[in-house]
Design a protein around this nucleic acid. Structure first.
Lengths: 190, 190
DNA sequence: TGCGTATTAGGTCAATTGTCCTAATTGCCG
DNA sequence: CGGCAATTAGGACAATTGACCTAATACGCA
């Protein structure tokens, strides 16, 4: 469908702009201009800014869900799968240095705006948390699985934040190695 | 001086509002209302929003600088001083859970706005980094001092981010213990 | 072909924004 | 006391915002 395409284009453009500029600083006009449609057409597809945010979060949720599902199928080793997650910091290094973590920065911003959608945004982080918890459980550390998951998640968030602050690629590489070593250590205990 | 007081009140109110709502989402009217002065009076003290931001960052810089200096005087043991830093996560837990880290969230926001003041905001983070580097140097790990400093700094940032996301006090306590244990381990190596 | 729905364009609206100005008030100093 | 500078008040300004409407167009199906 051409219509679905336009709607999808809007969501994609909004996704990128919310990431690069933040939700609050991105206007209808910005998104409409990025997709090169009129504001009227824009309003036909999304009546409020919150509706776009909702669609963007849905897209991010399903994108990440698909990514995690791919890793589940790709490797039978949970430690390897966790490594895939951690290495996002390397794979997306350029964007993270420029804009930070898409999940963390959105969550933080919506919390400050006290926005209705913040619960939904948190679900993306929870998706990661629960997936990581499953991986650590499969590694045999059921008792500490969620604590380990939160540990890796917060560690990654911290690296993303400082990567953006100091634009230091060597730091990112160093920390990623440390996280991977930590995961190895934990997985060899069991 | 009464005049200095008004100006200081404005900076204090702006500081709190920038932290709680973000810089972009805080308007002149918000700050003026918080101090209960007219917009005209406000304009007398600060002609642009960027001027207020500049003053707020200056205040945050000197506040943190004073805090670090106090710790330097208070304890002769670098490991103890680092522990003071880490424990901010506990001391300021309520605010961090609500609004995240004041330094990290401002840095992230200004980076997304591509704001002129972002270099100055980064200086607050650099202040922490350099202070932590000095502590680790005194601990005897000169070679890795800056890497250790960035490690502790990013770790704390990550904990703050996830604390805000999941509002989980137990997680914060757990991670702070881990950081302190890690600092102990590093300091006992030397 | 032509009809009806889906889509697009462009303009309007009140509200809010940062910025700026002028007039009134305060308070200090001679 | 009077005068002058510092401070405060309140309004005006253009620009931008999210939201809304109507008219024109495109398109699928009979």
């Amino acid at each position: 469908m051409k219509s679905g395409s336009t709607k999808q284009q809007i969501v994609d453009a909004a996704d990128a702009l919310f990431y690069a500029q933040g939700f609050g600083e991105t206007s209808f006009a910005d998104i409409a201009q990025a997709v090169r449609i009129s504001r009227g057409n824009f309003y036909y597809h999304f009546r409020t800014k919150d509706e776009i945010l909702d669609a963007v979060i849905d897209k991010r949720l399903s994108d990440r869900d698909e990514m995690l599902r791919n890793w589940d199928e790709m490797s039978p080793d949970p430690a390897r799968r966790i490594a895939c997650f951690v290495r996002i910091l390397i794979v997306n290094q350029a964007k993270i240095i420029a804009y930070g973590c898409p999940v963390g920065t959105l969550t933080t911003e919506l919390a400050k705006l006290d926005h209705d959608a913040q619960d939904k945004a948190i679900r993306i982080m929870a998706l990661f948390r629960d997936w990581l918890t499953r991986q650590f459980s499969e590694l045999g550390c059921s008792a500490d699985a969620e604590a380990h998951a939160l540990h890796v998640l917060s560690w990654s968030q911290g690296v993303a934040t400082l990567a953006q602050t100091f634009k230091d690629e060597a730091f990112v590489a160093r920390e990623v190695d440390q996280i991977l070593a930590w995961v190895d250590k934990v997985s060899q205990k069991n």
